[in-house]
Amino acid sequence: IRKQWHEDITQDLRNHLVHKLVQAIFPTPDPAALKDRRMENLVAYARKVEGDMYESANNRAEYYHLLAEKIYKIQKELEEKRRT
């Protein structure tokens, strides 16, 4: 379902936000690492998460909020795993 606010969101912005999700899960300073085949699954997962939020959000603010919440949860989980 195409929503009115979707018209304001460019593909570049969506790609940028997918990249932010990927960085939250696997922070790497090396952009070449993103071309690694093992990263493809991670990028696919991040695209799916972003797509789900894009579809479920009712406006741009909610879209950003859902993504920020997801990134926060991912970082929290990773922190907890590092501690144990």
Rank of each mutant, 00 (worst) to 15 (best):
18 V>C: 04
5 W>L: 08
56 S>P: 05
43 V>Q: 06
67 L>H: 10
58 N>Q: 07
47 R>Q: 07
63 Y>S: 02
60 R>F: 12
45 Y>E: 07
54 Y>M: 00
52 D>T: 02
47 R>A: 01
49 V>E: 04
59 N>I: 00
18 V>S: 05
26 F>A: 15
34 L>A: 11
38 R>L: 05
56 S>W: 04
16 H>E: 15
58 N>E: 12
84 T>Q: 10
35 K>F: 08
29 P>F: 15
48 K>D: 05
48 K>T: 07
22 V>W: 00
72 Y>H: 11
1 I>T: 08
22 V>N: 01
9 I>M: 10
11 Q>P: 10
23 Q>L: 07
30 D>H: 05
61 A>W: 05
79 E>C: 04
2 R>V: 04
43 V>F: 09
37 R>E: 12
60 R>M: 09
12 D>W: 03
46 A>Q: 04
33 A>E: 10
10 T>H: 09
25 I>G: 06
3 K>F: 03
74 I>T: 12
36 D>Q: 10
45 Y>N: 01
10 T>A: 03
47 R>W: 02
40 E>R: 07
50 E>T: 02
65 H>K: 13
71 I>E: 09
12 D>S: 07
54 Y>N: 03
38 R>Q: 11
35 K>Q: 10
58 N>R: 07
70 K>A: 08
14 R>Q: 00
3 K>R: 05
50 E>C: 03
53 M>I: 14
5 W>P: 04
69 E>H: 15
25 I>H: 15
84 T>A: 09
67 L>P: 03
42 L>F: 08
75 Q>P: 04
19 H>T: 11
82 R>H: 10
15 N>V: 01
5 W>N: 08
55 E>M: 07
59 N>L: 02
17 L>Y: 15
33 A>N: 11
48 K>P: 01
2 R>F: 10
25 I>M: 15
67 L>S: 03
10 T>D: 13
9 I>D: 06
14 R>M: 03
61 A>H: 11
12 D>H: 02
3 K>L: 02
34 L>C: 12
44 A>V: 09
73 K>P: 04
30 D>S: 12
27 P>G: 11
25 I>K: 02
26 F>Y: 09
23 Q>G: 05
17 L>C: 08
8 D>V: 02
46 A>W: 03
48 K>E: 11
8 D>H: 02
64 Y>M: 15
42 L>P: 08
77 E>Y: 07
8 D>T: 10
46 A>N: 02
51 G>S: 12
36 D>T: 08
69 E>Q: 11
28 T>I: 09
4 Q>C: 04
79 E>T: 08
6 H>N: 00
58 N>S: 13
77 E>D: 12
72 Y>S: 15
37 R>V: 09
78 L>W: 14
53 M>T: 09
45 Y>T: 01
13 L>A: 12
55 E>G: 01
78 L>Q: 15
80 E>A: 04
27 P>Q: 11
67 L>A: 09
76 K>V: 11
7 E>F: 10
27 P>V: 04
73 K>C: 11
59 N>D: 13
42 L>T: 10
38 R>N: 10
20 K>H: 01
60 R>N: 02
74 I>E: 06
17 L>K: 02
70 K>N: 03
4 Q>M: 09
13 L>Y: 06
6 H>S: 03
68 A>R: 14
75 Q>H: 07
7 E>P: 04
11 Q>G: 07
16 H>Y: 08
73 K>L: 11
39 M>V: 07
30 D>W: 07
2 R>M: 09
17 L>M: 15
73 K>S: 11
53 M>V: 09
42 L>A: 15
56 S>N: 09
42 L>R: 04
69 E>Y: 03
13 L>C: 13
34 L>W: 08
73 K>Y: 07
51 G>W: 04
18 V>N: 02
72 Y>G: 14
16 H>P: 00
5 W>Y: 06
15 N>M: 06
51 G>M: 15
66 L>P: 01
55 E>V: 08
6 H>D: 01
39 M>K: 07
63 Y>D: 02
35 K>Y: 08
39 M>D: 06
19 H>I: 04
59 N>M: 00
48 K>Y: 01
47 R>P: 01
68 A>G: 14
44 A>L: 08
28 T>H: 04
18 V>M: 01
58 N>C: 06
35 K>S: 13
2 R>T: 13
10 T>S: 09
40 E>I: 01
55 E>A: 07
72 Y>V: 14
9 I>C: 02
3 K>P: 05
64 Y>A: 12
17 L>H: 15
71 I>Y: 01
6 H>T: 05
60 R>Q: 11
6 H>G: 05
78 L>S: 14
58 N>T: 09
71 I>P: 04
73 K>R: 11
49 V>P: 03
41 N>Y: 01
58 N>V: 03
32 A>D: 14
2 R>Q: 13
80 E>I: 15
13 L>E: 15
53 M>R: 01
50 E>W: 01
43 V>R: 05
58 N>L: 03
66 L>T: 03
82 R>D: 12
68 A>D: 15
52 D>I: 03
65 H>E: 14
54 Y>G: 04
9 I>S: 02
76 K>D: 12
4 Q>E: 15
15 N>T: 06
3 K>Q: 03
81 K>G: 10
47 R>K: 10
9 I>Q: 00
7 E>Q: 15
16 H>R: 14
63 Y>G: 00
21 L>D: 06
12 D>N: 03
81 K>H: 05
54 Y>R: 04
6 H>W: 04
62 E>H: 07
2 R>G: 08
3 K>C: 02
24 A>R: 02
51 G>Y: 08
65 H>F: 03
31 P>L: 09
64 Y>W: 02
42 L>V: 15
43 V>G: 02
51 G>N: 13
52 D>Q: 11
76 K>L: 09
84 T>F: 04
17 L>R: 01
19 H>S: 11
7 E>Y: 05
66 L>C: 10
81 K>E: 10
36 D>K: 07
35 K>T: 13
8 D>Y: 04
70 K>H: 08
64 Y>C: 06
71 I>R: 06
37 R>Q: 13
